[in-house]
Amino acid sequence: MIFGRSERGKPPVEPVTLKILVAGGFGAGKTTLVGAVSEIKPLRTEELLTEAGRPVDDTSGVEGKNTTTVAMDFGRITLREDLVLYLFGTPGQDRFWFLWDELATGALGAVVLADTRRLEDSFAAVDYFERRSIPFLVGVNCFDGAARYPSQSVRAALDLDPSVPLVLCDARDRESVKEVLIGVVQHAMAYAADRRAAVTT
């Protein structure tokens, strides 16, 4: 960590920052969930892409070539002056996988939002987090008019490991989203404890 030099005046508070990812298919409610708890209107950042679909880290070698951008939504929750949680909605298409890598590095955990009318849209996200050993929770977003399925059948359809939490939620509802996020953090703690136990035994 880099520390500011001692200077006149009160040094600015440098918060500890954390991030939780919000994944799921198009229309699963990712932007809605971020907006329900964020203290700022969900912001968009853009990543420049070359035509090959790779992120541009610099501007060398792209002179004269067209590039495009892909947008990511994010929100912020200031938990304390020195503790800030960011929520990032992953781009819906899995072909933006390189952005997922960027977002997933250093993430505390993830929420996979599932819409029971289109469960197959969540497969890619479940796969991704499983493979990278990123603790995640599945939030079944309860859309009006969608049939309710017992969680066991949703679990079976998604082929979830028994240790992965699955909760019903409403992405529009702040209290519901708070519970989802608390669930992610609790799961991340349990996950870390399990891993330590696995190492020491």
Binding site: T59, E63, N66, T67, V70, P91
Partner: peptide
């Protein structure tokens, strides 16, 4: 999800990060 086509930015003057 992809934005408009844009040209690279001149402000970094072609330098690499």
């Amino acid at each position: 999800e992809a934005g408009p086509v844009v040209r690279p930015y001149a402000m970094t003057r072609g330098r690499t990060s």
